[in-house]
């Protein structure tokens, strides 16, 4: 839960607050939890709603939730950098840099990507948490990963990281 909060929030203090708020909300709403269903997914959907509340409180949610899918597609195409050994290249980044790059994605993309790639949840669970169709989860995840790739690769180029550049 804390990892998800870190993925969503800009700093650790906010992540602490979000984790705390999520557990307290879950406690209050415990009666709405259906036995036998995925508890982690249930908590993550509370976390997402709490995060939206938090952002709404700061009047920034509108900006964050609006994603221009064309911008996303554009960024994807702009990047021509290729590395033959992606794994080696990614090993150059610190954990903090990787998380920071993920955080720089629009929230409605980074959260599905986080849930799919880091938490390894099924598309169905993520669809439920994000309250969106499964197809959208797949396309958002795929695009989010592509933007992340672009960001990381161009940063790698700036930093002179190597990973079998060709």
């Amino acid at each position: 839960m804390y990892r998800a909060a870190v993925a969503m929030c800009g700093d650790r203090d906010d992540a602490d607050d979000l984790t705390q708020a999520t557990f307290l909300k879950a406690f209050e709403r415990f009666e709405s939890f259906e036995k036998g269903t995925n508890c982690k997914a249930w908590l993550l959907s509370i976390l997402r709603n709490k995060w939206i509340d938090l952002m709404r409180h700061r009047n920034t949610v509108g900006q964050i939730l609006q994603i221009d899918e064309n911008i996303v597609a554009g960024q994807e195409q702009n990047d021509e950098i290729k590395y033959s050994n992606c794994e080696d290249l990614l090993a150059n980044f610190s954990d903090e840099q990787i998380i920071k790059a993920l955080r720089s994605l629009p929230a409605e993309q980074r959260f599905p990507l986080f849930l799919v790639d880091v938490e390894q949840l099924s598309h169905e669970d993520v669809a439920e948490i994000m309250d969106m169709p499964i197809g959208t989860v797949k396309s958002r995840t795929s695009r989010a990963r592509a933007i992340l790739r672009t960001k990381l690769f161009s940063h790698a180029k700036e930093m002179g990281f190597t990973g079998g550049e060709r």
């Binding site: 990892r3 954990d95 986080f114 799919v116 790639d117 880091v118 390894q120």
Partner: peptide
């Protein structure tokens, strides 16, 4: 590779002991 690297990056993310304690107290 990206998915694996993200997963390993988050392995290092651990909540402060104080956070768990605060939540425990509140609950």
């Amino acid at each position: 590779a990206i998915a694996n690297r993200m997963r390993s990056a988050f392995d290092s993310v651990k909540p402060d002991k104080r956070l768990a304690n605060n939540i425990r107290m509140q609950l």
